[in-house]
Design a protein around this nucleic acid. Structure first.
Lengths: 153, 153
DNA sequence: GCAGCCTTGTAAGGCTTCCGTACTAAAATA
DNA sequence: TATTTTAGTACGGAAGCCTTACAAGGCTGC
């Protein structure tokens, strides 16, 4: 029997973050595909994850998602066509439109958030509640500047 | 002075993971761009991050990166053209080729890993060593199955 | 009240990264 | 030897995002 040396190679952090995101995202995708909202993809998160309850402007969504207005606009158009949101003129600014979830959109958002929290809970069961709590704590610290204030509700 | 209620809204885990990866990746890109290897991008990590010291087969790299052979093959071809790796026939299998870093490739790999570890150290300074250690621990636990054994060196 | 600048949203086109289908050649298996 | 599996490649395409360019409304200073 060979007495193998433990080689304590540090896995590159970038790979860990990538793999963890990927694991979470693919699980999320899989579960959403089993619901009535199977046409929702991860990409749509730039809207669902950043929109205010009363609606938001495109510019606002783009800033929060760290994407261009055009990119978020494309996603919004797709969600609009599928009945998840509507664009209504902003009464306080003739150029602007308020992007606002429809009832169906709010249902999809709630369901998505439910699944996301469910996966986190399962991670806690599987890998340890402390560990996942620490994961959340660290991620929140590390992304605090980037994500700004916690969106209302 | 208004006594604002703390609204304990949980940020969706998927967004935290995404933002953290993005923060790390963009910092990495920025720093690599300031080196002699400025043509290396994040995408190239599927090779640099998974290749064995003595070289690996394309199929092997693809499995570890959880990508198709075609995708990794494209990346490999680009790296080959830029002098970071070479494909040599596998003496033990006439179909296979061994993908192997050149000297320049090894330099780029070492430099990249140095920067990656540097960023992690800076995160530790900025956000707390415990926190970042816990982050690493949790990410390793969560991605253990997915990433398999730690690659040698 | 108007000239010039800024902001909001859109249009059009392009790039990167990845995948699916299809194929060749070599190896393994029956 | 005939058949099936495996390694790698070619090709076309889709998704997701960006850049450039623009129209229309708002704002500021005179």
């Amino acid at each position: 029997m060979s007495t193998e040396l433990e080689i304590p190679t540090r896995r590159p952090m970038i790979g860990l973050l990538d793999a963890a995101f990927d694991a979470f995202a693919s699980e999320l995708e899989r579960r959403v595909a089993d619901t009535a909202f199977r046409d929702i993809r991860i990409t749509h998160g730039c809207v669902f994850g950043n929109i205010e309850p009363d609606g938001s402007r495109l510019t606002e969504l783009a800033q929060r998602a760290r994407m261009t207005k055009q990119s978020v606009g494309e996603v919004a158009t797709e969600l609009e066509q599928r009945g998840y949101l509507e664009r209504v003129p902003d009464p306080s600014d003739g150029r602007a439109k308020i992007i606002r979830l429809t009832e169906r959109g709010r249902e999809a958002q709630a369901l998505g958030r439910g699944i996301i929290d469910e996966i986190e809970r399962e991670w806690a069961e599987r890998y340890g509640a402390d560990r996942v709590a620490a994961l959340r704590d660290a991620l929140e610290a590390v992304t605090a500047e980037r994500l700004g204030a916690v969106p209302v509700a």
